[in-house]
Design a protein around this nucleic acid. Structure first.
Lengths: 195, 195
DNA sequence: GTCTATACAAAGATAGAC
DNA sequence: GTCTATCTTTGTATAGAC
């Protein structure tokens, strides 16, 4: 018997609607209705539409970035395994939340400070370790290129999914198989490029 | 002595503001003011904010997709040159219009039909030729992976620029050099992976 | 904490005069 | 084609009952 507070109901309703329709097209009245409550409560708990939105975004952001940092900065995990980790984790996460990248990218253009802290922290810890691991291998590629190449190949299909499917490059119903099959390939490609 | 119609002034003002501030944050009153006219004229010519926005987006879309199709479907251009073409052209275009990818991706999620025609056409003409060229080389990779890999590595840094710079991975003032240097590297990487 | 009701401001859209 | 004035929707905020 799960008890859900009104605050939590509002958060879930907001998450659902913001995700479905975007910030601008979502009306606070609709969020309140979806949550089975009213406008006044929404403002009572969150103060404004924008604050509610930020709350929702923060949760998604942590989901996207949180788990990756510790693994990347672990010296005992090989480069190959780190690449696998990034590709596997992000592919699986985005398969469950296909709208996430666009959602994040949108907010990102407006609210850079919000993201700076988390990403800077992750990078500052992980990059030196990667640097060292690359140097030990005597590889020419920079950590920056390595990271960006891995993220590019993994994330881009999700970001550009509407383009990819509507162009007919990958059929809508084959998309899951496409990105799933790509996981192994990406790891091979990155290793081929990098090492 | 260039004569600019009111309609054209509105278009230019809209392009400028939508690009600077995004759709939601741009007020029709500001567009009208920027164009040196008024709200009523804006609606007289375009009917609504959304229609005006679509008009602006269409122009950008053609810029992004229009030039690429004929080159890709030309049998006399080698695979290597086509990869260079994509990477060079898109990098240069996006250096001049850094906001373009997000702008497009946003509109894309709402307005798929608008994009389907142009992209389908380009793909249908180009893909068979690429297919043939890959087969002649006896290469294992699919045209889909080839295209998506090339676009990924080229476009992703622009799409994720706020993330990349705010994380400190690439400094804001080094970004132009970063993507410029990447052009040559991407071509090498893609060839290494593909051929 | 929760709700109803209401006030207010900002922004998109439109009517009607010229 | 152009403008002024006005309408409508929507986000925000608050008063007051329970």
């Amino acid at each position: 018997m799960e008890t859900v507070t009104t605050e939590e109901k509002i958060i879930r309703a907001a998450d659902k609607l913001f995700t479905q329709k975007g910030y601008a097209a979502t009306r606070t009245r609709d969020i309140a209705e979806e949550a089975g409550t009213n406008l006044a409560l929404l403002n009572y708990y969150f103060g404004s539409k924008e604050k509610l939105f930020k709350y929702v975004v923060q949760g998604k952001l942590k989901m996207l970035l949180g788990a990756m940092g510790p693994a990347l900065s672990d010296e005992h995990i090989s480069l190959e395994d780190k690449i696998s980790l990034i590709t596997e984790n992000y592919t699986n996460l985005l398969l469950e939340n296909e709208e996430l990248p666009i959602f994040i990218l949108n907010e990102l253009t407006v609210n850079r400070e919000l993201f700076a802290k988390i990403t800077q922290n992750t990078r500052q810890i992980a990059q030196p370790v990667l640097e060292k691991q690359l140097k030990e291998r005597g590889v020419e590629i920079s950590t920056t290129d390595l990271i960006i190449n891995t993220l590019s190949m993994t994330l881009f299909p999700f970001i550009a999914k509407p383009l990819i499917t509507s162009s007919g490059l990958v059929k809508e119903e084959e998309f899951v198989k496409f990105v799933t099959d790509r996981k192994k390939k990406i790891i091979e490609w990155i290793i081929k490029i990098t090492i």
